[in-house]
Design a protein around this nucleic acid. Structure first.
Lengths: 227, 227
DNA sequence: CGACCTTTTGACCTTCGTCAACCTTAGTGG
DNA sequence: CCACTAAGGTTGACGAAGGTCAAAAGGTCG
Protein backbone atom coordinates (compact mmCIF):
# COMPACT_ATOMS: atom_id res chain seq x y z
CA UNK A 1 0.00 0.00 0.00
CA UNK A 2 2.68 2.43 0.86
CA UNK A 3 6.16 2.88 -0.41
CA UNK A 4 7.17 4.50 2.82
CA UNK A 5 7.04 1.17 4.44
CA UNK A 6 8.49 -0.46 1.35
CA UNK A 7 11.81 1.24 0.79
CA UNK A 8 13.17 -1.13 -1.78
CA UNK A 9 15.62 1.39 -3.11
CA UNK A 10 17.28 1.99 0.22
CA UNK A 11 20.80 0.62 0.53
CA UNK A 12 19.84 -1.19 3.67
CA UNK A 13 22.38 -3.86 2.99
CA UNK A 14 25.00 -1.35 4.08
CA UNK A 15 23.60 -1.19 7.57
CA UNK A 16 25.00 -4.00 9.66
CA UNK A 17 22.53 -3.48 12.51
CA UNK A 18 19.68 -4.52 10.34
CA UNK A 19 21.25 -7.74 9.24
CA UNK A 20 22.85 -9.12 12.30
CA UNK A 21 20.37 -11.44 13.75
CA UNK A 22 21.02 -10.91 17.42
CA UNK A 23 19.44 -7.47 17.63
CA UNK A 24 15.82 -8.47 17.34
CA UNK A 25 13.03 -7.20 19.49
CA UNK A 26 10.17 -9.57 20.09
CA UNK A 27 6.59 -8.33 20.27
CA UNK A 28 3.52 -10.32 21.17
CA UNK A 29 0.10 -9.69 19.70
CA UNK A 30 -1.21 -6.36 20.94
CA UNK A 31 2.17 -5.06 22.12
CA UNK A 32 3.03 -1.52 21.10
CA UNK A 33 6.30 -0.92 19.29
CA UNK A 34 5.88 2.72 20.16
CA UNK A 35 3.02 4.97 21.11
CA UNK A 36 1.67 8.07 19.45
CA UNK A 37 3.51 11.18 20.57
CA UNK A 38 6.60 9.43 21.88
CA UNK A 39 9.80 11.21 20.82
CA UNK A 40 11.49 9.76 17.79
CA UNK A 41 14.19 7.30 18.82
CA UNK A 42 14.81 5.42 15.61
CA UNK A 43 13.52 3.32 12.77
CA UNK A 44 12.51 -0.33 12.81
CA UNK A 45 12.76 -3.03 10.20
CA UNK A 46 10.09 -5.70 10.41
CA UNK A 47 11.60 -9.19 10.34
CA UNK A 48 8.53 -11.32 10.88
CA UNK A 49 4.88 -10.81 11.77
CA UNK A 50 3.04 -7.59 11.05
CA UNK A 51 1.96 -4.33 12.63
CA UNK A 52 -0.62 -1.63 12.18
CA UNK A 53 -0.22 2.06 12.81
CA UNK A 54 -3.17 3.73 14.48
CA UNK A 55 -3.36 7.51 14.61
CA UNK A 56 -5.79 9.20 16.92
CA UNK A 57 -6.94 12.58 15.68
CA UNK A 58 -7.78 15.66 17.67
CA UNK A 59 -11.40 14.56 17.48
CA UNK A 60 -10.65 11.22 19.11
CA UNK A 61 -11.15 9.17 16.02
CA UNK A 62 -8.65 6.39 15.60
CA UNK A 63 -7.65 5.63 12.06
CA UNK A 64 -5.50 2.82 10.79
CA UNK A 65 -2.94 4.70 8.73
CA UNK A 66 -0.41 2.05 7.80
CA UNK A 67 0.20 -1.66 7.70
CA UNK A 68 3.73 -3.07 7.95
CA UNK A 69 4.88 -6.52 6.95
CA UNK A 70 8.29 -8.21 6.91
CA UNK A 71 10.78 -6.09 5.01
CA UNK A 72 8.99 -2.84 5.74
CA UNK A 73 10.73 0.04 7.44
CA UNK A 74 8.64 1.59 10.19
CA UNK A 75 8.94 5.06 11.66
CA UNK A 76 9.93 7.23 8.72
CA UNK A 77 6.95 9.46 9.22
CA UNK A 78 8.22 10.29 12.70
CA UNK A 79 11.22 12.22 11.45
CA UNK A 80 9.19 15.29 10.60
CA UNK A 81 8.00 16.22 14.04
CA UNK A 82 10.59 14.18 15.91
CA UNK A 83 7.82 12.10 17.38
CA UNK A 84 5.88 9.07 16.31
CA UNK A 85 2.63 10.21 14.74
CA UNK A 86 0.72 7.08 15.63
CA UNK A 87 0.75 4.07 17.90
CA UNK A 88 2.13 0.99 16.21
CA UNK A 89 0.78 -2.33 17.42
CA UNK A 90 1.82 -5.88 16.68
CA UNK A 91 -1.02 -7.79 15.05
CA UNK A 92 0.60 -11.12 15.85
CA UNK A 93 3.90 -12.31 17.24
CA UNK A 94 6.37 -10.03 15.55
CA UNK A 95 10.12 -9.38 15.50
CA UNK A 96 11.80 -6.16 14.46
CA UNK A 97 15.37 -4.89 14.19
CA UNK A 98 16.17 -1.52 15.68
CA UNK A 99 18.04 1.29 13.98
CA UNK A 100 18.59 3.96 16.62
CA UNK A 101 18.52 7.59 15.69
CA UNK A 102 22.19 8.24 16.56
CA UNK A 103 23.25 5.43 14.29
CA UNK A 104 21.00 6.83 11.58
CA UNK A 105 22.65 10.24 11.83
CA UNK A 106 26.11 8.69 11.68
CA UNK A 107 25.17 6.66 8.68
CA UNK A 108 23.62 9.66 7.02
CA UNK A 109 26.88 11.51 7.38
CA UNK A 110 28.92 8.61 6.07
CA UNK A 111 26.67 7.57 3.25
CA UNK A 112 25.25 10.51 1.33
CA UNK A 113 23.55 7.97 -0.90
CA UNK A 114 21.49 6.77 2.01
CA UNK A 115 20.29 10.21 2.86
CA UNK A 116 19.42 10.90 -0.69
CA UNK A 117 17.53 7.67 -1.05
CA UNK A 118 15.69 8.40 2.12
CA UNK A 119 14.66 11.78 0.80
CA UNK A 120 13.56 10.23 -2.46
CA UNK A 121 11.50 7.65 -0.72
CA UNK A 122 9.82 10.33 1.29
CA UNK A 123 9.15 12.51 -1.72
CA UNK A 124 7.81 9.57 -3.64
CA UNK A 125 5.62 8.69 -0.76
CA UNK A 126 4.12 12.15 -0.56
CA UNK A 127 2.98 11.88 -4.10
CA UNK A 128 1.79 8.30 -3.79
CA UNK A 129 -0.34 9.01 -0.80
CA UNK A 130 -1.77 12.13 -2.33
CA UNK A 131 -2.76 10.43 -5.49
CA UNK A 132 -3.92 7.21 -3.97
CA UNK A 133 -6.05 8.75 -1.31
CA UNK A 134 -7.47 11.39 -3.60
CA UNK A 135 -8.39 8.59 -5.94
CA UNK A 136 -9.99 6.61 -3.14
CA UNK A 137 -11.89 9.73 -2.18
CA UNK A 138 -13.99 9.40 -5.30
CA UNK A 139 -14.26 5.64 -5.41
CA UNK A 140 -17.04 3.30 -4.41
CA UNK A 141 -16.53 0.79 -1.62
CA UNK A 142 -16.12 -1.89 -4.25
CA UNK A 143 -13.32 -0.07 -6.00
CA UNK A 144 -11.59 0.80 -2.74
CA UNK A 145 -11.49 -2.79 -1.65
CA UNK A 146 -10.45 -4.01 -5.08
CA UNK A 147 -7.66 -1.47 -5.00
CA UNK A 148 -6.65 -2.54 -1.53
CA UNK A 149 -6.29 -6.19 -2.47
CA UNK A 150 -4.50 -5.45 -5.71
CA UNK A 151 -2.03 -3.32 -3.78
CA UNK A 152 -1.57 -5.99 -1.15
CA UNK A 153 -1.07 -8.61 -3.81
CA UNK A 154 1.62 -6.48 -5.40
CA UNK A 155 3.25 -6.02 -2.06
CA UNK A 156 3.41 -9.73 -1.39
CA UNK A 157 4.64 -10.38 -4.90
CA UNK A 158 7.54 -7.99 -4.44
CA UNK A 159 8.58 -9.79 -1.31
CA UNK A 160 8.62 -13.10 -3.07
CA UNK A 161 5.42 -14.42 -1.52
CA UNK A 162 2.46 -15.65 -3.46
CA UNK A 163 0.52 -12.67 -4.84
CA UNK A 164 -2.69 -14.68 -4.97
CA UNK A 165 -2.87 -16.32 -1.59
CA UNK A 166 -1.98 -14.50 1.55
CA UNK A 167 -2.93 -13.88 5.12
CA UNK A 168 -3.65 -10.41 6.45
CA UNK A 169 -3.54 -10.03 10.19
CA UNK A 170 -5.84 -7.02 9.88
CA UNK A 171 -9.42 -7.39 11.04
CA UNK A 172 -12.27 -6.22 8.80
CA UNK A 173 -12.65 -3.33 11.17
CA UNK A 174 -9.05 -2.36 10.53
CA UNK A 175 -9.47 -2.69 6.79
CA UNK A 176 -12.58 -0.56 6.96
CA UNK A 177 -10.78 2.05 9.00
CA UNK A 178 -7.92 2.06 6.54
CA UNK A 179 -10.21 2.60 3.59
CA UNK A 180 -12.78 4.83 5.20
CA UNK A 181 -15.56 2.26 5.21
CA UNK A 182 -17.70 0.59 7.86
CA UNK A 183 -17.25 -3.06 8.76
CA UNK A 184 -20.64 -3.88 7.33
CA UNK A 185 -19.72 -2.49 3.94
CA UNK A 186 -16.42 -4.35 3.93
CA UNK A 187 -18.19 -7.57 4.80
CA UNK A 188 -20.93 -7.13 2.22
CA UNK A 189 -18.49 -6.21 -0.52
CA UNK A 190 -16.29 -9.21 0.23
CA UNK A 191 -19.39 -11.38 0.01
CA UNK A 192 -20.10 -9.90 -3.41
CA UNK A 193 -16.53 -10.56 -4.54
CA UNK A 194 -16.94 -14.11 -3.37
CA UNK A 195 -20.14 -14.57 -5.35
CA UNK A 196 -18.53 -13.08 -8.45
CA UNK A 197 -15.58 -15.44 -8.09
CA UNK A 198 -13.10 -12.61 -7.79
CA UNK A 199 -11.75 -13.14 -4.32
CA UNK A 200 -12.37 -15.86 -1.81
CA UNK A 201 -11.84 -15.06 1.84
CA UNK A 202 -12.04 -17.17 4.91
CA UNK A 203 -11.25 -15.36 8.10
CA UNK A 204 -7.97 -13.61 7.51
CA UNK A 205 -6.86 -15.79 4.65
CA UNK A 206 -7.44 -14.38 1.20
CA UNK A 207 -7.30 -16.02 -2.16
CA UNK A 208 -7.45 -13.87 -5.25
CA UNK A 209 -9.19 -15.74 -8.03
CA UNK A 210 -9.21 -13.06 -10.71
CA UNK A 211 -6.57 -10.39 -10.28
CA UNK A 212 -7.29 -8.98 -13.73
CA UNK A 213 -10.90 -8.33 -12.93
CA UNK A 214 -10.05 -6.90 -9.53
CA UNK A 215 -7.60 -4.47 -11.13
CA UNK A 216 -10.26 -3.39 -13.57
CA UNK A 217 -12.71 -2.86 -10.74
CA UNK A 218 -10.15 -0.84 -8.82
CA UNK A 219 -9.66 1.50 -11.73
CA UNK A 220 -13.07 1.54 -13.26
CA UNK A 221 -16.00 2.01 -10.95
CA UNK A 222 -15.98 5.43 -9.50
CA UNK A 223 -17.84 8.58 -9.07
CA UNK A 224 -17.11 11.60 -11.15
CA UNK A 225 -15.33 14.88 -10.42
CA UNK A 226 -13.07 16.09 -13.26
CA UNK A 227 -10.36 18.72 -12.87
CA UNK B 1 -3.79 22.62 2.83
CA UNK B 2 -0.38 21.14 2.50
CA UNK B 3 2.81 21.74 4.35
CA UNK B 4 4.80 20.50 1.41
CA UNK B 5 3.97 23.67 -0.34
CA UNK B 6 4.36 25.60 2.86
CA UNK B 7 7.86 24.95 4.05
CA UNK B 8 8.00 27.53 6.76
CA UNK B 9 10.86 25.86 8.52
CA UNK B 10 13.15 25.90 5.54
CA UNK B 11 16.05 28.32 5.78
CA UNK B 12 15.14 29.80 2.46
CA UNK B 13 16.59 33.11 3.46
CA UNK B 14 19.99 31.56 2.88
CA UNK B 15 19.31 31.03 -0.79
CA UNK B 16 20.10 34.16 -2.73
CA UNK B 17 18.42 32.94 -5.91
CA UNK B 18 15.09 33.02 -4.28
CA UNK B 19 15.38 36.55 -3.06
CA UNK B 20 17.01 38.43 -5.86
CA UNK B 21 14.20 39.90 -7.76
CA UNK B 22 15.56 39.69 -11.26
CA UNK B 23 15.22 35.95 -11.61
CA UNK B 24 11.47 35.79 -11.96
CA UNK B 25 9.61 33.76 -14.48
CA UNK B 26 6.29 35.17 -15.61
CA UNK B 27 3.34 32.91 -16.33
CA UNK B 28 0.01 33.91 -17.79
CA UNK B 29 -3.25 32.26 -16.88
CA UNK B 30 -3.29 28.70 -18.20
CA UNK B 31 0.47 28.50 -18.76
CA UNK B 32 2.16 25.36 -17.51
CA UNK B 33 5.10 25.76 -15.16
CA UNK B 34 5.96 22.16 -15.99
CA UNK B 35 4.10 19.19 -17.32
CA UNK B 36 3.49 15.80 -15.79
CA UNK B 37 6.33 13.40 -16.49
CA UNK B 38 8.94 16.01 -17.34
CA UNK B 39 12.29 15.26 -15.71
CA UNK B 40 12.95 17.10 -12.49
CA UNK B 41 14.90 20.27 -13.12
CA UNK B 42 14.39 22.19 -9.94
CA UNK B 43 12.09 23.75 -7.41
CA UNK B 44 10.06 26.93 -7.74
CA UNK B 45 9.05 29.52 -5.21
CA UNK B 46 5.78 31.27 -5.94
CA UNK B 47 6.13 35.07 -5.76
CA UNK B 48 2.68 36.20 -6.88
CA UNK B 49 -0.42 34.63 -8.31
CA UNK B 50 -1.31 30.98 -7.79
CA UNK B 51 -1.10 27.58 -9.43
CA UNK B 52 -2.78 24.23 -9.30
CA UNK B 53 -1.20 20.85 -9.74
CA UNK B 54 -3.19 18.41 -11.82
CA UNK B 55 -2.22 14.75 -11.83
CA UNK B 56 -3.62 12.47 -14.47
CA UNK B 57 -3.91 8.89 -13.37
CA UNK B 58 -3.46 5.75 -15.41
CA UNK B 59 -7.21 5.75 -15.86
CA UNK B 60 -7.23 9.20 -17.43
CA UNK B 61 -8.81 10.91 -14.53
CA UNK B 62 -7.36 14.29 -13.74
CA UNK B 63 -7.24 15.20 -10.10
CA UNK B 64 -6.27 18.51 -8.58
CA UNK B 65 -3.64 17.42 -6.08
CA UNK B 66 -2.21 20.69 -4.84
CA UNK B 67 -2.77 24.43 -4.75
CA UNK B 68 0.17 26.82 -4.47
CA UNK B 69 0.05 30.44 -3.41
CA UNK B 70 2.75 33.07 -2.87
CA UNK B 71 5.41 31.75 -0.52
CA UNK B 72 4.83 28.14 -1.43
CA UNK B 73 7.60 25.94 -2.71
CA UNK B 74 6.56 23.89 -5.72
CA UNK B 75 8.13 20.69 -7.01
CA UNK B 76 9.19 18.86 -3.88
CA UNK B 77 7.13 15.86 -4.80
CA UNK B 78 9.17 15.51 -8.00
CA UNK B 79 12.35 14.55 -6.18
CA UNK B 80 11.22 11.00 -5.59
CA UNK B 81 10.95 9.83 -9.14
CA UNK B 82 13.10 12.56 -10.63
CA UNK B 83 10.12 13.75 -12.61
CA UNK B 84 7.21 16.06 -11.96
CA UNK B 85 4.24 13.96 -10.91
CA UNK B 86 1.67 16.40 -12.20
CA UNK B 87 1.16 19.32 -14.54
CA UNK B 88 1.27 22.63 -12.75
CA UNK B 89 -0.81 25.41 -14.26
CA UNK B 90 -1.02 29.10 -13.48
CA UNK B 91 -4.53 30.02 -12.41
CA UNK B 92 -3.86 33.69 -13.05
CA UNK B 93 -0.89 35.86 -13.90
CA UNK B 94 1.83 34.38 -11.75
CA UNK B 95 5.52 34.88 -11.07
CA UNK B 96 7.92 32.30 -9.68
CA UNK B 97 11.60 32.17 -8.77
CA UNK B 98 13.60 29.23 -10.00
CA UNK B 99 15.92 27.08 -7.92
CA UNK B 100 17.66 24.73 -10.35
CA UNK B 101 18.55 21.23 -9.35
CA UNK B 102 22.30 21.73 -9.55
CA UNK B 103 22.09 24.68 -7.24
CA UNK B 104 19.95 22.63 -4.90
CA UNK B 105 22.57 19.88 -4.75
CA UNK B 106 25.32 22.42 -4.08
CA UNK B 107 23.31 24.00 -1.34
CA UNK B 108 22.49 20.63 0.13
CA UNK B 109 26.18 19.86 0.38
CA UNK B 110 27.00 23.24 1.90
CA UNK B 111 24.11 23.47 4.28
CA UNK B 112 23.34 20.22 6.03
CA UNK B 113 20.63 22.06 7.87
CA UNK B 114 18.82 22.65 4.62
CA UNK B 115 18.86 19.01 3.69
CA UNK B 116 17.70 18.03 7.07
CA UNK B 117 14.89 20.53 7.03
CA UNK B 118 13.87 19.33 3.63
CA UNK B 119 13.72 15.78 4.86
CA UNK B 120 11.70 16.83 7.84
CA UNK B 121 9.26 18.72 5.74
CA UNK B 122 8.80 15.70 3.55
CA UNK B 123 8.35 13.35 6.46
CA UNK B 124 5.90 15.70 8.06
CA UNK B 125 4.04 15.97 4.84
CA UNK B 126 3.70 12.22 4.48
CA UNK B 127 1.97 12.06 7.77
CA UNK B 128 -0.17 15.12 7.18
CA UNK B 129 -1.49 13.89 3.89
CA UNK B 130 -2.14 10.44 5.25
CA UNK B 131 -4.09 11.70 8.15
CA UNK B 132 -5.90 14.48 6.35
CA UNK B 133 -7.03 12.40 3.44
CA UNK B 134 -7.91 9.41 5.55
CA UNK B 135 -9.99 11.77 7.63
CA UNK B 136 -11.65 13.25 4.55
CA UNK B 137 -12.36 9.72 3.38
CA UNK B 138 -14.92 9.35 6.10
CA UNK B 139 -16.34 12.86 6.06
CA UNK B 140 -19.47 14.31 4.57
CA UNK B 141 -19.29 16.89 1.80
CA UNK B 142 -20.15 19.54 4.36
CA UNK B 143 -17.25 18.59 6.60
CA UNK B 144 -14.82 18.36 3.70
CA UNK B 145 -15.63 21.83 2.52
CA UNK B 146 -15.59 23.25 6.03
CA UNK B 147 -12.18 21.68 6.49
CA UNK B 148 -10.99 23.06 3.20
CA UNK B 149 -11.91 26.63 4.07
CA UNK B 150 -10.55 26.43 7.58
CA UNK B 151 -7.26 25.15 6.15
CA UNK B 152 -7.20 27.90 3.54
CA UNK B 153 -7.97 30.49 6.16
CA UNK B 154 -5.07 29.24 8.24
CA UNK B 155 -2.82 29.34 5.22
CA UNK B 156 -3.68 32.95 4.44
CA UNK B 157 -3.29 33.88 8.08
CA UNK B 158 0.22 32.49 8.20
CA UNK B 159 1.18 34.54 5.21
CA UNK B 160 -0.06 37.69 6.83
CA UNK B 161 -3.21 38.01 4.76
CA UNK B 162 -6.69 38.26 6.16
CA UNK B 163 -7.83 34.84 7.30
CA UNK B 164 -11.47 35.78 6.83
CA UNK B 165 -11.57 37.35 3.41
CA UNK B 166 -9.67 35.92 0.52
CA UNK B 167 -9.80 35.10 -3.15
CA UNK B 168 -9.20 31.59 -4.44
CA UNK B 169 -8.38 31.33 -8.11
CA UNK B 170 -9.68 27.75 -8.05
CA UNK B 171 -12.97 27.06 -9.79
CA UNK B 172 -15.66 25.05 -8.01
CA UNK B 173 -14.76 22.23 -10.33
CA UNK B 174 -11.19 22.37 -9.07
CA UNK B 175 -12.30 22.48 -5.46
CA UNK B 176 -14.56 19.53 -6.08
CA UNK B 177 -11.75 17.63 -7.70
CA UNK B 178 -9.46 18.43 -4.81
CA UNK B 179 -11.93 17.17 -2.26
CA UNK B 180 -13.39 14.28 -4.19
CA UNK B 181 -16.80 15.90 -4.71
CA UNK B 182 -18.86 16.88 -7.74
CA UNK B 183 -19.38 20.51 -8.71
CA UNK B 184 -23.03 20.26 -7.87
CA UNK B 185 -22.33 19.16 -4.35
CA UNK B 186 -19.80 21.94 -3.84
CA UNK B 187 -22.29 24.48 -5.09
CA UNK B 188 -25.15 23.19 -3.00
CA UNK B 189 -23.05 22.99 0.13
CA UNK B 190 -21.75 26.52 -0.33
CA UNK B 191 -25.35 27.65 -0.72
CA UNK B 192 -26.15 25.99 2.58
CA UNK B 193 -23.18 27.67 4.27
CA UNK B 194 -24.44 30.97 2.91
CA UNK B 195 -27.90 30.38 4.30
CA UNK B 196 -26.45 29.42 7.68
CA UNK B 197 -24.33 32.56 7.74
CA UNK B 198 -21.10 30.62 7.96
CA UNK B 199 -19.40 31.58 4.74
CA UNK B 200 -20.38 34.05 2.06
CA UNK B 201 -19.03 33.48 -1.43
CA UNK B 202 -19.36 35.50 -4.55
CA UNK B 203 -17.54 34.06 -7.51
CA UNK B 204 -14.05 33.35 -6.32
CA UNK B 205 -14.12 35.73 -3.39
CA UNK B 206 -14.81 34.15 -0.06
CA UNK B 207 -15.74 35.71 3.24
CA UNK B 208 -15.75 33.56 6.32
CA UNK B 209 -18.42 34.77 8.73
CA UNK B 210 -18.09 32.18 11.45
CA UNK B 211 -14.73 30.45 11.56
CA UNK B 212 -15.57 28.85 14.89
CA UNK B 213 -18.62 27.13 13.53
CA UNK B 214 -16.82 26.06 10.39
CA UNK B 215 -14.07 24.46 12.45
CA UNK B 216 -16.65 22.61 14.45
CA UNK B 217 -18.32 21.39 11.30
CA UNK B 218 -14.99 20.25 9.90
CA UNK B 219 -14.32 18.11 12.91
CA UNK B 220 -17.75 16.96 13.84
CA UNK B 221 -20.01 15.64 11.16
CA UNK B 222 -18.73 12.40 9.78
CA UNK B 223 -19.38 8.82 9.12
CA UNK B 224 -18.06 6.09 11.32
CA UNK B 225 -15.37 3.42 10.96
CA UNK B 226 -13.36 2.96 14.17
CA UNK B 227 -9.97 1.29 14.47
C1' DC C 1 -22.94 40.33 -29.31
C1' DG C 2 -22.45 35.37 -29.37
C1' DA C 3 -19.98 31.10 -28.11
C1' DC C 4 -18.46 28.88 -24.25
C1' DC C 5 -17.62 27.99 -19.64
C1' DT C 6 -18.78 28.11 -14.89
C1' DT C 7 -22.26 28.06 -11.44
C1' DT C 8 -26.69 27.18 -9.62
C1' DT C 9 -30.96 24.65 -8.94
C1' DG C 10 -34.22 20.75 -9.34
C1' DA C 11 -35.68 15.73 -9.68
C1' DC C 12 -34.28 11.16 -9.23
C1' DC C 13 -31.84 7.04 -7.80
C1' DT C 14 -27.74 4.54 -6.09
C1' DT C 15 -24.57 3.76 -2.52
C1' DC C 16 -23.45 3.14 1.85
C1' DG C 17 -23.93 4.35 6.71
C1' DT C 18 -26.97 3.13 10.60
C1' DC C 19 -29.47 0.08 13.67
C1' DA C 20 -30.38 -4.41 14.98
C1' DA C 21 -30.25 -9.29 15.11
C1' DC C 22 -27.68 -13.31 14.60
C1' DC C 23 -23.70 -16.33 13.76
C1' DT C 24 -18.79 -17.76 14.26
C1' DT C 25 -14.33 -17.95 16.18
C1' DA C 26 -11.08 -17.73 19.86
C1' DG C 27 -9.94 -17.49 24.55
C1' DT C 28 -11.06 -18.48 29.54
C1' DG C 29 -12.08 -21.03 33.53
C1' DG C 30 -14.39 -24.73 35.61
C1' DC D 1 -12.91 -31.16 27.40
C1' DC D 2 -16.60 -28.44 27.29
C1' DA D 3 -19.53 -24.35 28.62
C1' DC D 4 -19.40 -19.55 28.61
C1' DT D 5 -18.18 -15.20 27.02
C1' DA D 6 -16.50 -11.71 24.19
C1' DA D 7 -14.89 -10.10 20.14
C1' DG D 8 -15.17 -10.33 15.37
C1' DG D 9 -17.98 -11.15 11.35
C1' DT D 10 -22.28 -11.62 8.53
C1' DT D 11 -26.88 -10.34 6.99
C1' DG D 12 -31.22 -7.64 6.50
C1' DA D 13 -34.08 -3.38 6.54
C1' DC D 14 -34.07 1.42 6.19
C1' DG D 15 -32.89 6.19 5.22
C1' DA D 16 -29.88 10.00 4.16
C1' DA D 17 -26.07 11.84 1.58
C1' DG D 18 -24.59 12.76 -2.58
C1' DG D 19 -23.79 11.34 -7.47
C1' DT D 20 -26.25 11.72 -11.98
C1' DC D 21 -28.94 13.92 -15.52
C1' DA D 22 -31.06 18.01 -17.17
C1' DA D 23 -31.86 22.73 -17.72
C1' DA D 24 -31.29 27.41 -16.91
C1' DA D 25 -28.78 31.53 -15.36
C1' DG D 26 -24.50 34.15 -14.87
C1' DG D 27 -19.62 35.35 -16.53
C1' DT D 28 -15.87 35.88 -19.66
C1' DC D 29 -13.52 36.32 -23.81
C1' DG D 30 -13.24 36.50 -28.58
Amino acid sequence: MSCLTLPLGLPLEDIPELHESQMFTLLRKGDALFKQGMPFTGLFLVRSGSLKQVSTTSTDESLVTAYAMPGDLVGLDAIGQNAYPGTTLALETTTVSVLPQERLSELGAQLPALRQQLCRNLSQEVHNERLMLRLLLRRTAEARLAYFFVAMSERFRRRGYSPLRFRLALSRIDIGSYLGLTVETVSRTLARFHKQELLRSSGRDFHILDLEALSRLAEASGRRGGA
